[in-house]
């Protein structure tokens, strides 16, 4: 079932240009000059119910604008958007009752209130029927291990604890779609892992459709089967991360530790990326030369203590991708 449909989405902001200094500010009062900024230009994609999609791109690429339009806060300049059959910005109140949103940088909870009181208030705001609410709340409290935190005011929680509470708050009304805007930003490693495990479980076990934006490539690696890359307001890629990797940076890396000093190797289409006294890091394309063959070639003529093969880090793949598309932050 199609859940999110985005067609030829465009958003243009008019930004007032202002000359520096007091004189400029005064002149700006009399006659403003406007500059058009194309935050989004012709973005199209669709999402099936139950999918988990990661939205990535450099700062200023248009990720937040897209999420804001999808969540009904912002009206696009042109294009068509439907989420669960509703146009978000035409039907805001009905639409937002069916989605959940978690901002990594912004709290949804009441700072001075105990966590449980905030949950109760949200249940009233979303008109959740009391028995359903209690059932859902207990379920989320168990999944997110919130029990010991319920009586604490939100301001006393650590960031990791708060994010767990934020997730519960966004899901109390049992939304079919969850938007996550940089949900792991600033979290320590265990908290990041907990958030990823929870999102995966929510998606797999409860069938919640998830759309997440992130700069943390480990989020992408751990969660998303499908990745959309956006740059300067345009859609640059849409597909499984593996195919993005294959198209951009198919190379593998071979790390070799030698028994003696690292030798000069003369192998066609294999480049030396790094060398120390007794080790080499080689880059090769497995379609030119498969890893076993390369290893065999080296071990045949040199005494080798250890080898291992890996792939370029996901950050490297993405950075290369941005390079190829000239999509760095404007």
């Amino acid at each position: 079932m199609l859940q999110i449909l985005v067609e030829a989405l465009a958003k243009t902001y008019r930004v007032a240009e202002r000359a520096p200094g007091l004189a400029g500010a005064l002149r700006g009062l009399v006659r403003r000059r406007w500059r058009e900024v194309h935050a989004l230009a012709d973005v199209s994609f669709s999402l099936e119910a139950g999918e988990l999609l990661a939205f990535i791109g450099p700062n200023g690429a248009g990720k937040s604008t897209t999420v804001k339009i999808l969540s009904g806060i912002l009206r696009p300049t042109s294009g068509r958007v439907e989420v669960g059959g509703l146009v978000p910005y035409e039907d805001r109140i009905r639409h937002v009752a069916r989605i959940g949103v978690v901002f990594g940088q912004r709290s949804q909870l009441w700072w001075d209130l105990p966590v449980i009181d905030g949950f109760d208030l949200l249940a009233d705001i979303y008109r959740v029927e009391p028995t359903r609410y209690r059932h859902r709340r207990d379920e989320l409290v168990a999944m997110l291990r919130l029990e010991p935190l319920l009586d604490q005011p939100v301001r006393q929680l650590s960031l990791g604890q708060r994010m767990r509470a934020e997730f519960a708050a966004a899901l109390l009304h049992d939304p079919a779609i969850l938007f996550l805007d940089e949900p792991t930003i600033g979290l320590d490693a265990p908290s990041k892992l907990a958030v990823r495990a929870f999102v995966r479980r929510l998606n797999r076990e409860q069938g919640v459709t998830v759309l997440l934006t992130t700069h943390d490539m480990h989020d992408v690696e751990a969660l998303a089967e499908r990745v959309i890359v956006i740059g300067q307001g345009r859609l640059l890629a849409d597909g499984p991360f593996a195919s993005l990797r294959a198209g951009v940076l198919a190379e593998r890396r071979l790390h070799v530790d030698f028994a003696g000093p690292a030798p000069e190797l003369d192998l066609p289409r294999v480049t030396v990326r790094a060398r120390t006294e007794r080790s080499l890091e080689l880059a090769f394309d497995p379609t030119d030369i498969p890893a076993p063959k390369l290893i065999a070639l080296i071990t045949a003529s040199h005494a080798v203590e250890d080898v291992h093969v890996d792939e370029p880090a996901i950050e490297e793949v993405i950075a290369r991708f941005y390079d190829l598309h000239d999509a760095h932050e404007a």
Binding site: I93, V96, Q108
Partner: peptide
């Protein structure tokens, strides 16, 4: 934005 994300 948080206000607008609530169905009220």
């Amino acid at each position: 934005d948080r206000v607008l994300l609530r169905p009220r």
